[in-house]
Design a protein around this nucleic acid. Structure first.
Lengths: 208, 208
DNA sequence: GTCTATAATTCGATAGAC
DNA sequence: GTCTATCGAATTATAGAC
């Protein structure tokens, strides 16, 4: 069959995204992508130059974080949680690509750090935080959201992957809310260097 | 140089663990592990039979979850968070191996699900929860803890990887506390099928 | 625009000498 | 107990016919 160059490129890209998302970078071979697109492997090289080039074209990503300024202050957590799930449930490919490839390609891990610094941190700084505080809050939000993404879309851990989005958001909303606007430790510990004495275990120092 | 079989096996295992943790399953080649152990690749095959066998020997893992029964009810969250960090800061290799390889080997993802079901869920069921509720609570705990592990030890995301353990525990403790013992949605939403109307966005159904 | 043929690597695994 | 030599398979990438 003979197709236009544009059509062929689109088909290859669509298959590539799904393969990278499902198999990771190393195991998503050009051969398997070509087979999925019902095409010869050399066509992939012709259009994208190399496997790296194909990956670059297939792995575009944008968080599209909403303006948190325009949300009632006590709803920012639920709003942000709902936003991510609305996005991911509609299309989880970009997310799965990112998580599955960042593990093996340092360049992709860099990209995640970039998305974090350039999209999530600014959105939180917009809430009126000092830059350094905003970075910490953004980091905490990232741990919870990347964690639930990992469990739900990559590891497919039963209770998490089976819950409906409304229930998950109801649980995660208050968590993000606290990370976004509350004081460091609501139970009384201060925000200084170490709050470990509020905890029944001795803790190792981060430099150890 | 000539070493005893026991010594050689130990050296190979130590190098293998670090390579699997740093490079993932596919890129941690038998050749590179042998080179790191200053030994011939065929020795690895001799002692462990195959790459699979080597991985099985290198990837043993145990959460060692503490008895939550014996902890003050309002301290279970902080206790659990502190426990994981105490363990991970002392030796993060097992954790990194698990995260880096589960992404690419379904058998390892199975293993994570097994650890979850056989170690974390029972510890929470011991708190006196109905089995189904305990599974959900355990799943939520897993999302937060695996997420922070991913950001700190694998992606090395700056604010999270730089924070000291006391500060992180101070933040995560209340989160786990709520996941472990609080009612589903403290802000008023009910625990039924869908709490989405407590949220300013329409949400897709999980089956969509 | 599509495909065949093949080069150049790299990997896991095996056989066997010492 | 250790190593050399090598096989067979799979990969990315290139050259070129049609």
């Amino acid at each position: 069959m003979r197709r236009s160059a544009q059509d062929t490129k689109q088909v290859i890209l669509a298959v590539a995204r799904e393969r990278f998302a499902a198999d990771g970078y190393d195991r998503a071979t050009i051969r398997s992508i070509a087979a999925g697109a019902d095409i010869d492997p050399s066509m992939v090289m012709r259009y994208f130059g190399s496997k790296e080039g194909l990956f670059g074209a297939a792995a575009e990503f944008d968080l599209d974080v909403p303006d948190l300024d325009r949300v009632a202050r006590d709803q920012v957590g639920a709003t942000l949680a709902a936003h991510f799930f609305r996005r991911w449930e509609q299309d989880s490919a970009s997310l799965r690509i990112l998580l599955r490839t960042a593990i093996v390609k340092e360049a992709v891990a860099d990209r995640i750090r970039g998305i974090f610094a350039e999209q999530l941190v600014p959105a939180i700084t917009g809430l009126g935080e000092a830059p350094e505080t905003a970075r910490v809050r953004a980091g905490l939000v990232a741990t919870q959201m990347l964690g639930v993404a990992l469990c739900r879309y990559v590891l497919r851990m039963p209770p998490v992957s089976a819950m409906d989005t409304g229930e998950i958001v109801a649980w995660l909303g208050p968590t993000l809310q606290r990370y976004l606007v509350d004081q460091p430790s609501p139970s009384g510990a201060s925000a200084d260097t170490n709050g470990a004495d509020s905890v029944p275990f001795p803790l190792p120092e981060s430099g150890a």
